[in-house]
Structure formats: C-alpha cells, structure tokens
Amino acid sequence: MATRVRPNSKRCVVIGGSGFLGRHLVEKLLDRGYSVSVFDIRQSYELPGVTFLQGDLCDKQALLTALKNVSLVFHCASPAPSSDDRTLFERVNVQGTKTAIEACIEAGVQKMVLTSSASVVYDGTDIKNGSEDLQYATKPIDYYTQTKIQQEKLVLEACDKHKGFLTVAIRPHGIFGPRDPQLVPIMVDTARRGKMKFIIGDGSNVVDFTYVDNVVHGHILAAERLRPDSPICGKAYHITNDEPVRFWDFMSELLVGLGYDAPRFHLPYFLVYGLALLLWLLTWILSPVFSIKTTFTPMRVALAGTHHYYSCERAKEHLGYKPVVSLKEGIARTLESYPHLRKGA
C-alpha cells in the first residue's frame, strides 16, 4: 500500500497571486521562508523561487496539479469590485471557490485562508465599529458583495463539513498601497477630468482604509494560528489599520500629495444617491438595447457618503493582530510609489 506524502507545512499556493494583494502576500511569504507557488489566470510578474501556474479556477485538474504536496492555500482571487460583470463574479467567486475547496480536499490540503471583504456585512447604511457578529448584508450593494457573501459562507462551512480541512476568512476594508490598480489611479483619473471637486454629504463620515502590508500581516497570522484546537477555525476576522478616518480627509490627503486640488464643494447625500439610483435604473432598463456602463452608481455614492468602519478586537485577541504600518506611513509610501500620477507628470 502506497504511503501518502505528508504536505510540507511551509509549502503554500496563493490563488490569485498575480493580483495587487496577492503579489504583496507572495513577497512577504518568501521573506518568511515559505515555498510559494502562484495559481492564476495570468502571470503579471516574475520572482526568483516562485513557481507560476496559469489556469482557470474552475478547472479542478489544473488546481490539483498546483496543489500537489501543499499544506496551505491562500485564496485571493476575485474580479475587481468595480467590474459590473455578474457572470464573471458568479464564475470566479462562487463556482471557482467551490472547485477550489473540492480540489483542496482531494489533494489533502490542510488549511485555506480566504480573502473576503468587510463589505459582506455592509448594505449601504452606516456601520460604526462593526464587529464580526453583524449579519450578512440582506441587500448587498453590488454583485461583488453578493458573491463574496456566498464565497465566504462556502469556505467557512467547509471547516465543519470536512474533517482535517481548516478554514478562516480575512475581511479587509479599503485596501491601498503601492501597485494598487484601483483606488489611486481611478481617483487621479477622476481628478484629471475635473470631477473631484465635490464632497458627497457634509464630509464627516468616517471609514477604514487599510494599508496592504497590514492585510498581508493578517493573512499570515491567521494561517500560522489555524490549528484543529484553535478558536479561529471557521471564523471571519476584520483586518483594518485600526485608525478610522474621515473619508474625504483621506481622499484629499492623497490628491493634494499628488499635486491636485482637494474637493471643496458639498452636495447633499440623498440628492446624489437618488440621481445615481435613477441613472442605474435607466441603465438597467436600456441594457437589452444599449451597452451602457457608468461609474456613477448608488454603491459608490454610499461608500463615499456613509460611515463604515470596523472593530479589530477579535483579530487582536485571536490572531495577535496589530497593524505593522501606520496610516500616515502607508499614505507616504503610497504617494511615493506613484510619481507617474503626479499632476504634470
């Protein structure tokens, strides 16, 4: 009878390792002595010692090849929240995650750390110091959130269903940092088009922004504490900078740091939200006839005009988490990394 090879506890696969968060995670894992492979639909960079395996997340055979003799999987793959492709979200976040779980169990993988999102409990209304005990959003603000809820449930429930397979979910919020393809580039593009002049609401709404190194730190802490006797099994954890800040103060600091004017004119929140909702409905009605896409959505208005910040107390208690980079330092590093986005560049 053949003896099954015990997976190397330091050998891991980062699913979605070509993305923004995934690449930062890969780099930190290498620093900590892990043997790292990346499984992704594309390869966006090269690193010495890292094996890249290109494949579709819904292709179980491709995943099984990648997971051979692996003990730990980080699942970071997801379409960008700004995408409006419902079919893609469903395929990657739901069907792809089901396939990944099946492949992990078949391959004998012991642990999975999922990159979830704090948005799974956000329905567009104020959240102040929200804990992980909040119920999932009953009216998710977009397809991304809707499928992230399904994804998180699948991963956490797998911990109870399959003996020997341990799972945990990390819920970051407002990730930013060097190489981010979303927040800063989109903000600068909007400013260059003269559309960053307005503050939605009175500007007092407080939110969490989280520097990417802190999100990576939370993932690795969770992986290293994920054991059969650990209270973190099958649980979700909020990971933030633990420094809630006014949304418009944060945005203004980035804009001014890159040479652009800070927004200064106020627009009533409910007026702007109502206009965005009308535009969204019109787009939906006309979608069978015209291919129309808009970035002015109710979801984006809600994110810019409501309170949404979260407690990290459970992560501090169970994971020993505390941010490794302050918000001030994170902003400075981010601004330094975008010389090509400065005004006049």
Rank of each mutant, 00 (worst) to 15 (best):
M1D: 14
T3S: 13
P7R: 07
S9R: 15
V13Y: 06
G19F: 03
G22K: 00
R23H: 10
R23P: 04
H24R: 02
V26W: 00
D31R: 15
Y34I: 00
V36M: 05
E46H: 05
V50L: 13
F52N: 03
G55S: 06
C58G: 10
Q61F: 05
L64F: 11
A66C: 00
N69K: 12
V70W: 11
L72P: 01
H75E: 08
C76M: 15
A80D: 11
P81K: 00
L88S: 06
R91N: 04
V92L: 02
G96E: 11
K98Y: 13
T99K: 07
T99D: 05
I101L: 06
A103E: 06
C104Q: 06
E106S: 12
A107F: 03
V113E: 00
T115R: 06
A118M: 02
A118V: 02
S131R: 12
Q135W: 08
Y143R: 07
Y144T: 02
K148S: 09
Q151S: 13
K153M: 14
A158W: 01
H162Q: 05
G164D: 11
G164A: 13
L166Y: 13
L166S: 06
T167C: 09
T167S: 14
V168D: 07
I175V: 15
F176Q: 04
P178M: 09
M187C: 03
R193A: 10
R193G: 08
K195Q: 04
M196I: 04
F198K: 14
G203R: 09
G203Y: 13
N205D: 12
V207G: 02
D208I: 04
T210A: 10
V212H: 06
D213M: 04
V216D: 08
H217C: 04
H219C: 09
I220N: 02
E224N: 10
R225I: 09
P228Q: 13
D229S: 13
S230M: 12
A236V: 02
Y237Q: 01
H238T: 10
T240D: 01
E243D: 11
P244I: 12
R246F: 01
R246I: 04
F247S: 08
F247P: 00
D249T: 15
F250I: 10
E253V: 12
L254F: 09
V256N: 09
G257S: 14
G257L: 07
G257Q: 02
G257I: 08
G259E: 05
Y260Q: 06
H266L: 11
P268L: 10
L271Y: 13
A276Q: 02
L278M: 14
L279G: 05
L281P: 01
T283L: 08
W284V: 08
S291W: 13
T295Y: 13
T297P: 05
T297C: 08
V301E: 00
V301G: 02
A302P: 04
H308C: 05
Y310V: 00
Y310W: 05
C312K: 07
A315V: 14
A315R: 15
K316V: 05
K316M: 08
K316A: 06
K322I: 05
P323F: 10
P323R: 09
V325R: 11
S326W: 02
I331Q: 00
H340S: 15
H340W: 13
R342G: 11
